[in-house]
Nucleic acid binder design. Structure first.
Length: 265
DNA sequence: TTGTGTTTTATTGCCTCC
DNA sequence: GGAGGCAATAAAACACAA
């Protein structure tokens, strides 16, 4: 260990390499020749000057020369981890402390990692951008198709309405007739359809004039028929009245529910 | 010349492995 | 427990615009 030069070796950590008072105090002024003898690796005057400056003023943090960096880079490319033997060899070759070589590799690995992260980020970003463009295009396409579906649905509905107007369902056409018949039936069965009403108001039965023509033979008066109607009407009297009273309100239901217009509730 | 941002060298503390 | 790696950080060196 040279006095004032090797404060620590590769295995020693925590010692100050530059700026340490003990180190400074141990320093001795070095001639250019001494510097050259210590570092035969450098041949150019500029490098020698740097070495001299480095050795002469060790408290100043000096950057490595281009040759040193080149060799370190080559070594790093070959293997980015530093075994102790290689570290020692490199340090000897470069005229550096093994610790300096180790530190350089450590910092170089950190730089490589940062660059690698940037590359990965760029890769991911371009991939993301590509996916985003695809997604945007698909969303536009989807929107177009949705608009088409809405348009076609509206056309289909309009066509169905037209079809219903030009060719109404048979039950709807008969509806008017049926309704009037029902009204007639309603009158007959409404007065006579309810057995309770008939029993409670025999006058109505007696005044069946309204139902049977006056000129009908009394023998022809269909008392049984009325009774049968009453019996029949009693079963569906409620639905009948509901038909009569609900009928005017049904058309809306017809429009809304094509199948529901005949389903009386 | 100087202020400021970036790069490089080195240290420190923590962690893992043997 | 020592050696070595890594992340965070300090500080010197450097680049560059105003």
């Amino acid at each position: 260990m040279e006095s004032g030069h090797l404060i620590f070796d590769g295995s020693c950590r925590g010692s100050m390499f530059f700026g340490d008072q003990t180190f400074r105090g141990a320093r001795s002024v070095m001639t250019m020749e001494e510097a050259f003898r210590k570092r035969p690796f450098f041949s150019s005057p500029e490098e020698l000057e740097e070495v001299y400056y480095d050795e002469h003023l060790p408290e100043k943090k000096r950057r490595l020369t281009q040759e040193q960096v080149n060799l370190l880079e080559k070594s790093f490319e070959a293997e980015n981890k530093l075994e102790p033997e290689r570290k020692t060899q490199l340090a000897k070759k470069l005229g550096l402390q093994p610790r300096q070589v180790a530190v350089w590799f450590q910092n170089r690995r950190a730089r490589w990692k940062t660059k690698q992260l940037e590359r990965d980020y760029d890769l991911l970003k371009s991939s993301y951008d590509s996916l985003l463009a695809d997604h945007t295009n698909l969303a536009k396409e989807n929107e177009k198709l949705r608009a088409k579906v809405v348009s076609l649905s509206e056309k289909l509905q309009a066509q169905e309405v037209m079809d219903q107007q030009t060719h109404p369902p048979p039950e709807y056409v008969d509806g008017g007739v049926h309704t009037s018949m029902k009204t007639k039936d309603g009158l007959s069965s409404g007065s006579g359809g309810s057995a309770v009403v008939d029993e409670d108001s025999p006058q109505l039965i007696d005044s069946g004039d309204s139902y049977f023509p006056d000129d009908y033979p009394s023998c022809m008066r269909p008392v049984d028929g009325v009774q049968s109607e009453e019996e029949v009407g009693s079963d569906d009297s409620r639905s009948y009245f509901s038909d009569v009273f609900a009928a005017p309100e049904q058309p809306q239901q017809v429009e809304d529910e094509p199948l529901g217009w005949w389903v009386w509730s």
